[in-house]
Amino acid sequence: MEASQQEFLQHLLNGVTLGSIYALIALGYTMVYGILQLINFAHSEVYMMGAFAAYYTGRTLQLDQSPGILSFLILLIAAIVACSVLGLTIERLAYRPLRKAPKLNILITAIGVSLLLQYSAQVIFGAEPKLFPEVIADRTLFTVAEVEVRTLDITIFLVGTLAMGGLHFLIHQTRLGMAMRAVSVNGPVASLMGINVDRIIMWTFVVGSSLAAVGSVLVGLKYPKIDPLMGMLIGIKAFVAAVLGGIGSLPGAMLGGIFLGLSEEMVVAYLSSTYRDALAFGILIVVLLFRPAGLMGTPVKEKV
């Protein structure tokens, strides 16, 4: 196999792994948007808190001494519990009291919550970066055409796919999912049908935050440096991925994440690493020019 083809395969693998992480976090943005028409800016901080919950759990239990699937699951559960509680608290204390207020107020509240969490984390955890416990030994699993496929890449891809598959099942095969879809189409009518809208919104935050938790543990393993501002950049990118896929659409968020991850990677590979973000976001603008509702979004006419 030629060297250039080999490089392409390596870039493809890098891009898909990066993309599946964006996708996991993008799902959280899109779910909350679908139900509340709110861009939950605090989502990236929920993600950051997940990483810290896993970090402290790992350190207390000294899990990096005993790497393996079990330790990984413990970190995952710790992060999911912490993120769900945090997501619920934010919803209950910051968003619910404003449910009837103009959309602008709740959006500014979201930005406020995001900043509050960022800076509180700097005070509580300290600003210096911390090393995430390595609970999965990163080694070469197998080699395809001289491209090393590593345990972490496979873990990220598998866990990411499982989480997204689980979400798909939840939305389409369960009563809760049906209720979520109903609330997203029309909240007031759904409540007339006997659906407890507040409860459904709470569940949306639990599920969205759990996905962020899964993302945070996967990112922690792959890029083992965590700090209180880690959510900012990845949060923006995941949000962009959600918009790119068509905000409100679940398959769109997944597609948008993979698309963004791949385009970032390929821009570096074949154009220029200096303009990576500029070019990757340029592609985004072009896509939105031709498909204003995003890749999978359905344009809905606003009644005036």
Binding site: M31, M180, K301
Partner: peptide, 16 residues
């Protein structure tokens, strides 16, 4: 699938 209520582009602009 969760459906957006308003057009996506508009929501992006207003967010900006």
């Amino acid at each position: 699938m969760l459906q957006p209520k308003s057009s996506t582009l508009r929501s992006v602009f207003s967010t900006r």
